[in-house]
Write a protein that binds this DNA or RNA. Structure first.
Length: 924
DNA sequence: TAGGGTTTT
């Protein structure tokens, strides 16, 4: 077959690298792997972290001649940092330039036309499929970390399952390699719709040190945080050196455990002037520490050899000895150092002879504070990192020997019908527990203390549900429709999203105008079938090119008007990036610290009020605050100090800056004459622009409207200050952090609803009721055209307009009558005929309107049929579907004599000849 | 008057 390379490409590796490579178990499997790849279009490689598959498999392929500048090896990663660091590592190992081994992530990359090995985030490859469905510049695509089942990974696997045979047919075969850290591959191998021929699965060993797992005998009912504290205390007091990593579920828990541990195992702290200590970390100054070391003679950590199984633990007897996991790489607890389900209270006593270097770690923590966990702790101290789930996959902390796992995780849940999200703490999966345990065996044999019993563990789900089954999918569906995959329901998802989620996505996209509406006539069965197979509209195609959620993409698509684009781009970027503002609410260690935070918080609140603007601007609400914050920050050059001083999250501001750049480029490439650029000195919007922006926001967030409960509807106190939405029966409230919290506008739109103690709307903006029917007709049920104000002819559009009252869908809110297109039907022809006769449609006919034989108004009378001239004019218009100016001009183009005889019936015979000469009465 | 894990185009 043409894909089988005949060459061997030499690689010039340094001796040190060559030596390190040889230690990797995967090197022994090179031949097996390469044979499988040579003989099969699709291969699955399973190997845990530490097997070296990510760095080595691309090198095997390169050496075997799979790569060339016009047929690269592509590797996808679920995270940006991984794509960048892997490309750097592989380049170094192969002694090749980054021009050859490159990366591409959302905002940046170093790909050249020499690139032969390309690491990228999974989203980047998905975008590339949009431009080149066959991925013709790749000869191999590797999907890494497929076990994580991220949304993009799943969708890529589905797409590639179709691309591989297409490439085969074209005689340009493409190899697909799926790499997974677990053996959970049945969704790929057992899914005949995905891969009709089951791909071979190759298992590779990992170079991991053994991790002994200790289960608690008892599972704490709710105080897992306290149990963590006791376990860390025991480890620190009794076990030999080695870092401790604790898994908790949220920031607040992390900080509170950090405080407790620091109190229990303090070490001399001296605060240098100006030193920032807002999270209360001990100052890591070696000098200070050495001093205390001299003062206290015994400052050595215990030196019990944990891996010498003859040592008997001091407090044994409480452990769950039947502990066993079904993972062979993690040893079950047998006869070794278990610590018991500690519940003694003596641990609370402060003991400064055993300093513990305690650090918090979570995703939103400032990067420089995160970085502390990668540096070695002050000499003589033991490192203890208290982390959320970031430490499970995203960040690897060196030197960890002990893992304390509470067994819980905080996850976001979405209500499939209402879209309301909430955060819940749940048990983790067995796979997740094993992944956490594995973090103890990176540098030497380790121990994992699970704060739950083995029976509880056995009740865990084997794996967590793939992301695609848990989230709203409108963005995904739009991307797929842009790839002309219309029947999304037939797509070979490894695991399909629930049908309700697909239907909700399709419905939203139709309402946004991104998909063509399904027919509402015909057989019910066909209607239902058409419902989940709507093709993309031209607006949808434009929206799909904007790398943001469809609601926001719609806002961008509308913003050409009134010079709103720079503002919409900024607003959309700000809404896309989460957590713009710093949090100052977590309790601090010292009183000065508490006071300092109080000051910062007050300053931020003051700035937010300033950014919210004056007068009518304020109605843009939280989105105006975002706009103001980004504007001010950019004006200050996006300086770190400005962010720190004003309570802005620096990392968020940098991301917004890059996203603004990307969106500006995207908009420019859709409308070349827009000539947009990112202006660091962007002025605030004018009052008029702020109003347009509110309308643009409404057009994107049409399904996120809420209406204040009217005084007369207030039956129950629980509805005080509450809002009602179309889909929720319960009251919703403006979140107290919103600048509109006290304003309570009658109608608002919101970015999202999060359920905590109540249902709270966040990212709120006020809208005027009359905008709703004008901008969101899909959500409104319109009544009959009003007689007053009367229907009129619109010279701009050439169409008949009228005023129609409407009610909002599902909730029936009465909306003000607004001017809209006259509804389709015979009456629209009658009005068109009338305005045509009056000379309003075609100016050249206005000279004849003085001499008409009947009043044009008779067109509208119910007895109009009594007059032959009304009848023939109407019939002629209906015959050519002429109820607007454009249709009339088109009809004349087709037939220049069109309408002449019908019109002649309305004017004296004497004028007929003259009229016929100048007919049609317009230049075509 | 609140309280939020983690990713990505």
């Amino acid at each position: 077959p043409p894909c089988k390379p005949a060459v061997f490409i030499p690689v010039d590796r340094s001796p040190e690298i060559q030596e390190a490579r040889l230690k990797l178990p995967i090197l022994a499997e090179e031949q097996v792997i390469m044979e499988a790849i040579s003989e099969n279009p699709i291969v699955i490689i399973c190997g845990e972290t530490g097997s070296g598959k990510t760095t080595q498999v691309p090198q095997f392929l390169y050496e075997a001649g799979y790569a060339s500048p016009n047929g690269a090896i592509g590797i996808t990663e679920p995270r940006r940092v991984a794509a960048v660091s892997m490309s750097q590592r592989v380049a170094k190992e192969m002694n090749l330039s980054h021009r050859v081994v490159s990366y591409q992530i959302r905002y940046e990359g170093n790909v050249t036309d020499e690139t032969q090995i390309k690491f990228m985030t999974d989203g980047v490859l998905l975008k590339e499929i949009q431009k080149d469905f066959l991925l013709s510049k790749y000869r191999v695509v590797i999907i890494d970390e497929a076990h994580e089942r991220s949304m993009y990974t799943d969708i890529l696997i589905g797409l590639l399952s179709r691309i591989v045979p297409l490439r085969q047919k074209k005689g340009l075969p493409l190899k697909l390699i799926i790499m997974s850290a677990t053996l959970r591959v049945e969704d790929f191998t057992g899914n005949k719709r995905l891969f009709s021929a089951t791909p071979p699965v190759i298992q590779v060993d990992a170079r991991q040190f053994p991790v002994t797992v200790h289960f608690n005998k008892k599972t704490p009912l709710d105080d897992y945080s306290g149990e963590c504290f006791r376990k860390v205390c025991k480890i620190h007091r009794m076990l030999p050196p080695g870092g401790i990593l604790v898994f908790l579920t949220g920031q607040a828990e992390v900080h509170s455990l950090c405080r407790r541990l620091r109190k229990a195992f303090p070490f001399q702290k001296t605060k240098t002037a100006g030193e920032e200590d807002d999270k209360g970390e001990p100052v890591e100054e070696t000098r200070t520490f050495k001093k205390s070391r001299k003062r206290r003679k015994v400052l050595t950590l215990p030196k019990i050899d944990l891996d010498n199984y003859s040592v008997v633990p001091v407090d044994e007897g409480d452990e769950d000895r039947d502990a066993d996991t079904d993972d062979d790489d993690i040893a079950g607890s047998d006869l070794d150092l278990d610590l018991g389900d500690g519940d003694s209270e003596e641990d609370e006593k402060s003991d400064s002879s055993l300093p513990l270097y305690v650090l918090p770690l979570y995703s939103l923590l400032a990067p420089e504070k995160q970085a502390k966990v990668f540096r070695s702790p002050p000499p003589g101290t033991r490192l203890c990192v208290v982390a959320t789930n970031v430490a499970e996959t995203s960040l690897t902390i060196p030197g960890i020997k002990y893992v304390v796992d509470c067994g819980k995780v905080k996850k976001r849940f979405y209500d499939r019908i209402t879209g309301v999200s909430s955060f819940r703490v749940t048990w983790i999966s067995q796979a997740s527990a094993n992944q956490r345990a594995g973090r103890a065996g990176r540098t030497e044999p380790g121990h994992c203390y699970r704060l739950y019993s083995s029976a509880v563990f056995m009740d865990f789900e084997k794996f967590s549900a793939p992301e695609i089954t848990k989230r709203p999918v409108e963005d995904l569906i739009l991307q797929m429709k842009a790839l002309n995959i219309e029947k999304v329901i037939n797509f070979p998802f490894p695991t399909p999203p629930p049908t309700e989620a697909l239907a909700a996505a399709e419905e939203l996209l139709i309402a946004l105008g991104a998909l063509k509406e399904p027919p509402t006539t015909g057989r019910l069965k066909q209607q239902l079938a058409a419902k989940l197979s709507c093709p993309i509209s031209s607006l949808g195609r434009i929206m799909a090119t904007f790398p943001v959620a469809p609601r926001y993409a719609k806002m961008l698509a509308l913003s050409r008007q009134h010079n709103c684009l720079p503002y919409t781009i900024t607003m959309v970027a700000a809404m896309t990036v989460r957590e713009l503002f710093e949090e100052f609410d977590s309790p601090a260690v010292s009183e000065e610290e508490t006071a300092r935070r109080k000051g910062k918080r007050a300053r931020l609140l003051q700035m937010q009020r300033l950014w919210a603007g004056q007068g009518p601007m304020q109605k843009l609400g939280d989105l105006m605050v975002m706009l103001g914050a980004v504007g001010a920050c950019e004006y200050a050059g996006c300086a770190r100090k400005f962010c720190d001083d004003n309570g802005l999250r620096y990392k968020a501001m940098l991301e917004i800056r890059r996203l603004r750049g990307q969106l500006t480029t995207a908009v420019n490439s859709v409308c070349a004459d827009a000539g947009l650029y990112v202006d660091p000195k962007m002025k605030p919007p004018t009052e008029a622009q702020a109003t347009y922006l509110r309308q643009i926001v409404l057009a994107g967030l049409g399904d996120h409207i809420a209406r204040k409960v009217q005084a007369e509807e207030l039956l129950d106190d629980k509805w005080k200050n509450a809002y009602k939405t179309a889909l929720l029966d319960d009251p919703v409230f403006i979140h107290p952090s919103s600048v509109l919290f006290k304003e309570l506008p009658e109608f608002v739109v919101y970015q999202e609803i999060v359920e905590t103690t109540k249902l709270y709307m966040k990212g709120v903006s006020a809208v005027e009721p009359e905008w709703i029917p004008a901008l969101l007709p899909p959500y409104c049920h319109f009544g009959k055209p009003l007689e007053n104000p009367p229907p009129s002819y619109c010279p701009e559009t050439g169409r008949i307009h009228c005023h129609r009252p409407s009610v909002f869908y599902r909730v029936g809110w009465e909306l003000p009558a607004v001017e809209v297109d006259y509804p389709e039907g015979i009456d629209r022809y009658k009005y068109f005929a009338r305005f045509l006769l009056e000379g309003k449609v075609i100016e050249e006919l206005s000279s004849y309107s003085q001499c008409l034989l009947s009043s044009p108004l008779i067109m509208l009378k119910t007895w109009s049929k009594l007059q032959p001239r009304t009848e023939s004019l109407l019939q002629a218009l209906v015959a050519e579907n002429c109820d607007n100016r454009d249709a009339l001009l088109a009809a004349w183009k087709k037939n220049p004599k069109y309408l002449l005889s019908a019109y002649c019936q309305w004017i004296p015979e004497a004028m007929h000849q003259e009229l016929a000469k100048t007919w049609p009465p317009v230049a075509l």
